[in-house]
Structure formats: structure tokens, C-alpha cells
């Protein structure tokens, strides 16, 4: 549940842990506070009434930012060392092909899956379904957030026809 709330706060990566930004709820006027409250309530309700937990992600509200070739190149190197044993771009191998993964999954989903595969398998119904299909649990390759974002940038590059 704690992860749900982070939707309206800012998630920070501090000392290897994801933490709330301390003053996320400190609002300057009551109007903002009220709207924050409303948003929180909607989020909570939405998450509770969603049926399965396909919405679950460990990371919430992450942004990858504008395309950056240097970052994409870094991601390509990491992908070849830590991911390519099991993932190709266009064919199924040990895991699903990832050439267009950025079109079918959210940024939060992809980063969560790279950084916290164990938590995703335990909580996210999409990941559970994928495990049932592929049968090999995705290993935690212990990337950090910067590396994971670089891999995501590389996959964005690939989906746009570059990077391979």
C-alpha cells in the first residue's frame, strides 16, 4: 500500500532505497492540500477497485526524460552484458522480445521489472502471467536506477528503429 501513495509524492533514490521526498505533502495553501487529498483518495479507490493488481509497480511516477543518445549507448552496453542472454529485440528467447516493450508497458513497469523482479512477480498480475508463460523467473541483475533508465532509453531507441 505504501507504494500507492507515492503516486502523488516524489520518489527519491537515496542510499540504495526508494524513499518519499520528505515534504511531498507540505503544501502552501489549503486548496492545493485539498486537491492533493482528493487525488490521493481517487488513487486509493482506483487501486482498490481495480480487480487484480496489474497496476502494481514498485516505482511510481518515474520519468525518463527527453531522448539522449549517450544515455542510450550506455544502455545498449548494459543490455548486451546483463539482459541479452535472455532477451532479443524481435524474437522470444528465455524471456519476451523487448524491441517494442516501451509501447506495451509503462515506464514505471519496466523500471520496476528491471530493479525489483522479485516484488513484481509477487505482486503484479501481468508479471505473474508472464512467469506462467515463460517459466524462468527473471533474475535480479542488480542494476542501479541510473543503469535501469539507460537500458530503458536504449529500448526506446530500438522501438524507434535505432540502437540495434
Amino acid at each position: 500500500m505504501i507504494y500507492k501513495q507515492t503516486k502523488i509524492s516524489e520518489l527519491k533514490y537515496i542510499n540504495g532505497e526508494f524513499m518519499f521526498k520528505k515534504n511531498a505533502f507540505k503544501c502552501k495553501n489549503t486548496k492545493l492540500l485539498l486537491s492533493a487529498f482528493t487525488l490521493l483518495s481517487i488513487t486509493l479507490i482506483a487501486s482498490c477497485s481495480g480487480g487484480g493488481d496489474t497496476e502494481f509497480t514498485v516505482i511510481k511516477g518515474a520519468e525518463i526524460g527527453a531522448f539522449n543518445q549517450a544515455q542510450a549507448n550506455m544502455g545498449k552496453k548494459i543490455f548486451s552484458e546483463k539482459c541479452a542472454s535472455c532477451h532479443k529485440y524481435d524474437i522470444k528467447l528465455v524471456g519476451p522480445p523487448l524491441g517494442t516493450v516501451v509501447k506495451r508497458r509503462s515506464t514505471d513497469y519496466i523500471l520496476s521489472q528491471i530493479l525489483h523482479p522479485d516484488k513484481m512477480i509477487a505482486n503484479n498480475d501481468t508479471t505473474k502471467a508472464l512467469l506462467a508463460k515463460f517459466l524462468t523467473q527473471m533474475p535480479n541483475q542488480h542494476l542501479n536506477m541510473i543503469e535501469a533508465k539507460a537500458v530503458l532509453m536504449h529500448l526506446t531507441d530500438v522501438s524507434n528503429g535505432g540502437g540495434k
Partner: peptide, 9 residues
């Protein structure tokens, strides 16, 4: 050779 769940190359 490399090994990862669950194949060798």
C-alpha cells in the same frame, strides 16, 4: 562459456 538461467552459451 556463459551460464544464466537456464542455458549455456
Amino acid at each position: 562459456m556463459t551460464s544464466i538461467r537456464s542455458h549455456f552459451k
